[in-house]
Amino acid sequence: MNIGNFHIENKLMLAPMAGVTDLAFRIICKEMGVGLTVTEMVSVKGIYYKDKKTDSLTTIDPRERPVSLQIFGSEPDIMAHVARENLNDRKDIDLIDINMGCPAPKIVKNGDGSALMKDPKLAARLIKSVVDASNKPVTVKIRKGWDKDSINGVEIAKIAEDSGAAAVTVHARTRDMFYSGEADWDYIASVKCALKIPVIGNGDIFKAQDALLMMERTGCDGVAIGRGAMGNPWIFRQINQLLEGKNPDKPSPAEVLETSIRHMNMVCEFKGERIGVREMRKQLAWYIKGMKNSNEIKNRINTMEDKNEIESLLKEYLQNLIEDDNLQEAL
Rank of each mutant, 00 (worst) to 15 (best):
residue 2 N to E: 12
residue 2 N to C: 09
residue 11 K to I: 13
residue 13 M to C: 14
residue 14 L to H: 05
residue 14 L to S: 06
residue 15 A to Q: 01
residue 16 P to E: 09
residue 20 V to E: 10
residue 23 L to V: 10
residue 23 L to R: 15
residue 26 R to D: 11
residue 26 R to N: 12
residue 32 M to D: 06
residue 33 G to A: 09
residue 34 V to K: 00
residue 35 G to I: 13
residue 35 G to D: 02
residue 39 T to I: 04
residue 39 T to N: 08
residue 41 M to R: 03
residue 45 K to L: 09
residue 46 G to A: 07
residue 54 T to R: 00
residue 55 D to F: 15
residue 55 D to S: 15
residue 63 R to D: 13
residue 64 E to K: 09
residue 66 P to V: 10
residue 79 M to P: 01
residue 84 R to E: 14
residue 85 E to C: 09
residue 86 N to Q: 14
residue 98 I to W: 00
residue 99 N to Y: 07
residue 100 M to A: 11
residue 100 M to G: 01
residue 102 C to A: 08
residue 104 A to W: 04
residue 106 K to I: 14
residue 109 K to I: 12
residue 110 N to G: 14
residue 110 N to R: 14
residue 121 K to Q: 12
residue 125 R to V: 04
residue 125 R to P: 05
residue 131 V to R: 06
residue 132 D to T: 02
residue 132 D to K: 07
residue 134 S to V: 04
residue 134 S to M: 01
residue 143 R to V: 01
residue 149 D to R: 12
residue 152 N to K: 00
residue 159 I to C: 03
residue 159 I to Q: 02
residue 160 A to Q: 02
residue 162 D to P: 04
residue 165 A to F: 03
residue 167 A to E: 01
residue 179 Y to Q: 04
residue 186 D to G: 13
residue 188 I to T: 11
residue 190 S to H: 08
residue 197 I to E: 07
residue 199 V to C: 00
residue 201 G to M: 03
residue 204 D to V: 08
residue 207 K to I: 05
residue 209 Q to L: 07
residue 209 Q to F: 07
residue 211 A to G: 08
residue 212 L to G: 02
residue 213 L to F: 02
residue 217 R to E: 10
residue 219 G to V: 04
residue 220 C to D: 00
residue 223 V to E: 01
residue 225 I to V: 11
residue 228 G to V: 03
residue 230 M to I: 08
residue 239 I to T: 06
residue 241 Q to P: 06
residue 243 L to W: 14
residue 245 G to R: 10
residue 250 K to C: 11
residue 251 P to C: 03
residue 255 E to H: 06
residue 257 L to T: 01
residue 258 E to C: 03
residue 261 I to D: 02
residue 262 R to T: 11
residue 263 H to E: 10
residue 265 N to Q: 15
residue 265 N to T: 08
residue 274 R to H: 14
residue 275 I to V: 13
residue 278 R to V: 11
residue 278 R to P: 02
residue 283 Q to S: 14
residue 283 Q to L: 12
residue 285 A to C: 10
residue 286 W to H: 10
residue 288 I to S: 02
residue 289 K to E: 08
residue 292 K to M: 11
residue 293 N to H: 15
residue 293 N to E: 13
residue 294 S to C: 12
residue 298 K to R: 15
residue 301 I to F: 06
residue 302 N to Y: 10
residue 310 I to E: 09
residue 322 I to V: 13
residue 325 D to I: 06
residue 326 N to R: 13
residue 326 N to H: 09
residue 330 A to V: 12
